[in-house]
């Protein structure tokens, strides 16, 4: 257990830190946690970590929206209100109730909130890529993003991911 985890580079044979490349595509409260947990953990292990936030996933690094991520109970048989007929998830207030319940779960388990996780990840140097196409399609301005996010397209992310040891789409 004396060697730090590194991967050999193609040309020189020298080693570099391991790298994690994630695509975060979901903008729900429950969908925001997995990429943030994995990226934070990777950085804690001494890896480089980068997350490409695309489509609804961009909400996770949108200052106007990251405090307001929700859990959708409709068509979600595993959600916090799974014991109710799923169709009731369409009722007014059902999304708010499921969201409140999940927030309580997280808080009771001492898990950080999404904004706290975003800060933790940034503090460890996790790289945030904001999908420029999503910004254009959904009308997100550069000022809406959390500080330190790089606006980038697919080619830039693939260039980063090509040198990654672990790549996941979430």
């Amino acid at each position: 257990m004396t060697d730090v985890a590194t991967a050999p580079t193609e040309a020189s044979g020298e080693t570099r830190p391991r790298r994690l490349a994630l695509v975060a595509s979901k903008g729900t409260l429950d969908g925001a946690y997995p990429p943030l947990i994995l990226a934070t953990t990777a950085a804690s292990l001494g890896w480089e970590a980068g997350v490409y936030f695309t489509f609804y996933g961009l909400d996770i690094i949108n200052e106007r929206r990251l405090q307001k991520l929700k859990v959708a109970p409709l068509a979600n048989p595993s959600g916090p209100v799974h014991y109710m007929p799923n169709l009731l998830g369409a009722l007014p207030g059902a999304t708010a109730a499921a969201t409140a319940m999940m927030r309580k779960w997280m808080s009771d388990a001492s898990l950080p909130t999404v904004p706290e996780f975003v800060d933790m990840a940034r503090g460890l140097g996790v790289r945030f890529f904001a999908c420029s196409t999503t910004m254009g399609v959904m009308g997100v301005a550069a000022d809406d993003l959390v500080k330190g996010a790089d606006i980038a397209g697919a080619a830039a992310f693939l260039d980063y991911a090509a040198d990654a040891d672990v790549q996941l789409f979430i």
Partner: peptide, 14 residues
């Protein structure tokens, strides 16, 4: 104590 993944690894790393 009382903390779940990823907090023990995160805090241990810090």
């Amino acid at each position: 104590s009382g903390l779940l993944c990823p907090l023990p690894v995160y805090k241990a790393s810090l």
